[in-house]
C-alpha cells in the first residue's frame, strides 16, 4: 500500500521537472510560428479576394448577351410650303401660290394621261413652263419633295417635236429634255433635270391654274 503511493509521487515530480524546464523553447517556436502564420493568412486573404474578383468578371463575361440593335425607320415628312395669301390674289385651298400661278401637287402616282384628266377635273392644266427663271424656281420647288412630276409636255411622234399642252412647240433653248425622244414619251421635272419618261409610267404630277381676283 505505501510502496505504490511513493512510486507515483516520485514519477509525477520527475515529469513536472522535465516539462518545467522545456516551456521556454515551445514559446519561442510559437512566437516564430505565429508571425509566419499571420503573413501567410494575409497573403491567403489577398489571393482569395483576387480569385473572387476574377471569378465574378468571368461570370459576367459569360452571362453577358449581345445587345439588340434597335431598328428605326426614318419618317418621311411631307413638307408643304405655306400658302402665300394676299387680299387681292388668292389660291384655292391645297394649292400653292408660285410666281403668278396656283400650283397643285398630286398626292398619288398615275400615268400621264390620268394626271392630265385629274387637272382637267380641277379646272386646270398640267404645268406649263414659260421661261428659264420659272423652270429654275420650279426645280427648287420640287427639290424638297424627293419626287419627280409629270408636266404638260409630250413628244409628238408625227411631228417629231415636243409640244406643250397649249399647243406650242418646245423651245429647246429654254428647256433641254434628258432621255429618249420617241413615241409615248412624256416630260418629268426633277430638281436637277427634265427627263423623258414613258407616258404609261406612274408618276406624281403638277397642275396649274392662273390666279383669280377674289
Amino acid at each position: 500500500m505505501d510502496a505504490p503511493v511513493l512510486y507515483a509521487e516520485l514519477h509525477l515530480a520527475n515529469t513536472q521537472g522535465l516539462r518545467c524546464t522545456s516551456p521556454p523553447s515551445p514559446r519561442q517556436d510559437a512566437c516564430w510560428g505565429s508571425g509566419w502564420h499571420r503573413v501567410a493568412l494575409k497573403l491567403g486573404c489577398v489571393g482569395l479576394i483576387l480569385l473572387l474578383m476574377g471569378l465574378s468578371v468571368l461570370v459576367g463575361f459569360l452571362v453577358q448577351k449581345p445587345p439588340i440593335e434597335k431598328c428605326s425607320v426614318a419618317v418621311q415628312e411631307n413638307k408643304t410650303e405655306p400658302t402665300v395669301r394676299s387680299t387681292i390674289l388668292e389660291c384655292p385651298r391645297d394649292w400653292h401660290l408660285h410666281w403668278n400661278k396656283c400650283l397643285f401637287i398630286s398626292q398619288t402616282s398615275r400615268p400621264w394621261a390620268e394626271g392630265l384628266a385629274d387637272c382637267s377635273l380641277r379646272g386646270a392644266t398640267l404645268l406649263l413652263i414659260g421661261d428659264g427663271k420659272e423652270l429654275k424656281l420650279l426645280q427648287d420647288f420640287s427639290k424638297g419633295k424627293g419626287q419627280q412630276f409629270f408636266i404638260g409636255l409630250k413628244y409628238v411622234q408625227e411631228d417629231k417635236v415636243w409640244k406643250w399642252m397649249n399647243g406650242s412647240i418646245l423651245n429647246t433653248n429654254l428647256l433641254r429634255i434628258t432621255g429618249k425622244n420617241e413615241e409615248n414619251s412624256c416630260a418629268l421635272i426633277s430638281h436637277t433635270e427634265v427627263f423623258s419618261d414613258s407616258c404609261s409610267s406612274d408618276n406624281h404630277w403638277i397642275c396649274q391654274k392662273t390666279l383669280k381676283r377674289v
Binding site: S109, T178, G179, S198, S201
Partner: peptide
Amino acid sequence: RSGRGYTRR
C-alpha cells in the same frame, strides 16, 4: 410600275 432607268427615284 416601270419607268426609264435614267429617271430619278
